[in-house]
């Protein structure tokens, strides 16, 4: 049955009332169609054109794509996003789940602790990057502090080590997002039917077994949501890297987002930039569309 009221009746007023909803929705819809879908089409076209500094609509086939794929930096960017994404997702989920389970033990100061774990999510990545860049500064930050505390051999210079810099970004990013993932798991834990846990206790299962066998398997939808959200955040991550390392040292912390930005605005290679953006969109779409589809379908029933 249709959900919406469909008032009957003639007259100009009634006809107006029937058109109004669509009229009210249309500005947003037109904006979205133009600025999202129109732009996606345009960028996609540009990735198959000869565009350099200015748009050039002549067809170039896969030229930009092959240039992209042969680019050394793009290879680093892809490699980095893999490492970053994987470590970021796994660490956030492990830590987030751990914190959620610990917080779920009738903790007295739960509210305050939750507030502390979650606050980094309210910060701009630029602020986070600035803070961590300072905190991990080899000359004056953590390393120096440890030396002053008497641990002379302590060394932590990942931020300027091109082999390790990407891991400092993982640390900062995990710091920022874990609280959020914890909140998701906490909500999931609170949604589990308590009677089932009582039943398991009566059956004599120890607490850790109840978690492993009964509670965590029921959190599957939360795991799915967390992976999708984190993967999506990882692919879009740009601000944090710019603020912490600027993509460096060298190109060692380049990711697709910084790659696209520098090709678009510093190197004036629109075609390659467009191709890299289309690639990012394709990856995210492959991740998000099935997820949204299943979420929307569920909410239908």
């Amino acid at each position: 049955m249709p959900n919406s009221p469909s008032p009957q009746g003639g007259g100009a007023r009634a006809r107006m009332q029937r058109w109004l909803p669509k009229l009210v929705l249309s500005p947003s819809f037109v904006l979205i169609l133009f600025f999202v879908y129109g732009f996606i089409l345009w960028t996609t076209y540009i990735s198959f054109s000869n565009s350099g500094m200015l748009p050039d609509y002549s067809w170039a086939g896969l030229r930009q794509w092959s240039r992209l794929w042969n680019s050394w930096t793009w290879g680093i960017a892809l490699h980095n996003i893999w490492i970053f994404g994987l470590l970021y997702i796994v660490s956030c989920i492990v830590l987030g789940l751990l914190l959620a389970i610990l917080l779920d033990q009738r903790i007295r100061a739960e509210g305050a602790l939750r507030t502390i774990y979650l606050y980094p999510m309210a910060l701009s990545f630029i602020v986070t990057g600035t803070a961590w860049q300072w905190f991990l500064n080899p000359g004056l930050g953590l390393e120096k502090t440890m030396h002053e505390l008497g641990w002379q051999s302590f060394s932590f210079n990942w931020l300027i080590d091109s082999g390790m810099a990407i891991y400092t970004i993982v640390i900062a990013a995990v710091w920022q997002a874990t609280g959020f993932i914890m909140a998701m798991f906490l909500a999931g834990l609170r949604g589990i039917d308590g009677e089932m846990i009582k039943a398991a206790q009566i059956d004599g299962a120890p607490a850790w077994k109840i978690y492993l066998r009964i509670i965590i398997p029921q959190l599957r939808p939360v795991f799915l949501s967390a992976v999708v959200v984190l993967a999506h955040l990882a692919i879009k991550s740009f601000d944090l890297i710019v603020a912490m390392t600027g993509g460096g040292p060298g190109n060692s912390t380049a990711v697709p987002a910084t790659f696209m930005y520098s090709y678009a605005f510093s190197r004036n290679e629109m075609g390659i930039a467009a191709a890299s953006a289309v690639f990012m969109l394709a990856v995210i779409a492959a991740l998000i569309i099935p997820y949204l589809y299943s979420e929307l379908r569920e909410s239908r029933s």
């Binding site: 009221p5 469909s6 008032p7 009957q8 009746g9 003639g10 007259g11 007023r13 009634a14």
Partner: peptide, 23 residues
């Protein structure tokens, strides 16, 4: 009530046809 449209037939209230009258 006039909240769903009438596909076919007639609705009379007090002798007046109200199929098309706004709720």
């Amino acid at each position: 009530a006039g909240l769903d449209s009438i596909s076919d037939g007639e609705l009379l209230l007090n002798g007046r046809r109200i199929n098309e009258v706004h709720p």
